[in-house]
């Protein structure tokens, strides 16, 4: 087990190195005068871009020196800073990128976490009923509905909900995270947050339920066809006990494993959903940064996402061994 973890950690470092190389060279492919024009555009847009900051970025990435040695030096330089969690300074915000990521992550995490909880709570029972009533009308209805959910583009469905639940009926606020016209404190502030988060969360839940439900259904069907379920039924156990106690527990294995894989989704922010509802989450900030050419932020954000996925994959593999005693790690 210990050896396996060490091996996986080494592999994770290797993957991160590869990812950082790709991201670095993508940025390096941009001509310097283009980067300069982007920076000028940001200053015209109102934000003051400090000349020292730009100089610092040029030095950090080793821009301007296009010889092989220069690129290599720039990469090593940037990587060194990265190891110290120094992601550079954002042009638009004039603050360290790492600080902005940590600050904006909260909103994205809250939305994603609540959405994930609801997703599991709804999708698992649906998947189980669909599996136990395979090929029945219920199975068909559930399957078709969740398939429609999978097929909806988030920007389209999010806007429909925004139109129906916020603009037409006025039940919920259409965008933002807080009502800026009143200053709320304590419980009222919390209620305000909740109100603003309802539609974004609803959007994410409906779009993501499908995949989870189908996963549950497939696993459940597989388990229901196994011998020990037949034995359980043969010895006269109640169907309810067979399903809930015997079958469901084994269905949990892949579900729990997939939870670790959710790590990136929890922290990275849903770019499109946050854009539609104008939530000040990390995805929205990143989209804005990319449109405005805030290169330090783009690079930092991408590395952050890559780190999350690497940890997610690693955790999923380890989790698999923890949950399922039959799995032996070498």
């Amino acid at each position: 087990m210990f050896k396996y973890i060490v091996k996986r950690l080494a592999l994770a470092v290797l993957i991160l190195l590869g990812v950082s190389m790709i991201i670095y060279f993508l940025i390096r492919l941009m001509p310097v005068d283009f980067i300069q024009s982007k920076i000028d555009a940001i200053s015209r847009g109102g934000a003051t871009v400090d000349e020292n900051m730009v100089q610092a970025m040029y030095e950090m990435y080793g821009l301007g020196d296009d010889s092989f040695g220069g690129i290599l030096k720039g990469y090593v330089n940037w990587l060194g800073a990265l190891c110290k969690f120094d992601l550079g300074t954002s042009f638009v915000y004039s603050r360290p990128v790492a600080d902005i990521i940590v600050e904006k992550m909260g909103v994205s995490f809250a939305v994603a976490f609540i959405a994930t909880v609801f997703e599991f709570l709804i999708a698992i029972p649906l998947g189980i009923t669909a599996a136990t009533h395979q090929y029945s009308l219920r199975d068909y209805v559930v399957t078709v509905l969740v398939m429609v959910g999978i097929s909806l583009p988030s920007f389209f469905f999010g806007n429909i909900l925004k139109d129906l639940l916020a603009l037409k009926t006025g039940w919920f606020p259409p965008s933002g995270l807080i009502d800026s016209s009143v200053t709320n404190t304590g419980i009222n502030l919390l209620l305000d947050y909740v109100q603003h988060m309802v539609i974004p969360i609803l959007t994410i839940v409906i779009l993501s339920i499908g995949a989870r439900m189908r996963m549950t259904r497939t696993n459940m069907l597989e388990v229901l066809n196994s011998d020990y379920i037949r034995t359980a039924r043969a010895k006269g156990l109640k169907e309810r006990v067979v399903i809930n106690k015997h079958a469901f527990r084994n269905t949990l294995i892949p579900l729990v494993t997939s939870m670790a894989g959710l790590l990136p989704t929890l922290f990275s922010g849903a770019i499109i959903t946050e854009q539609v509802f104008d939530l000040p989450g990390i995805g929205n900030v990143a989209l804005d940064a990319m449109n405005r050419g805030d290169i330090p932020f783009i690079m930092g954000y991408n590395m952050f996402l890559a780190l999350l996925s690497v940890i997610g994959v690693l955790l999923a593999d380890l989790m698999y061994a923890v949950v399922d005693p039959r799995v032996k790690l070498e």
């Binding site: 590869g18 790709i22 770019i271 996402l305 690497v310």
Partner: peptide, 17 residues
């Protein structure tokens, strides 16, 4: 290993770059 690396690249953000 190359596919491991590519799998960890974020999709939409990279396309934006």
């Amino acid at each position: 290993r190359i596919s491991d690396i590519l799998m960890c690249l974020p999709g939409v953000p990279i396309l934006l770059i």
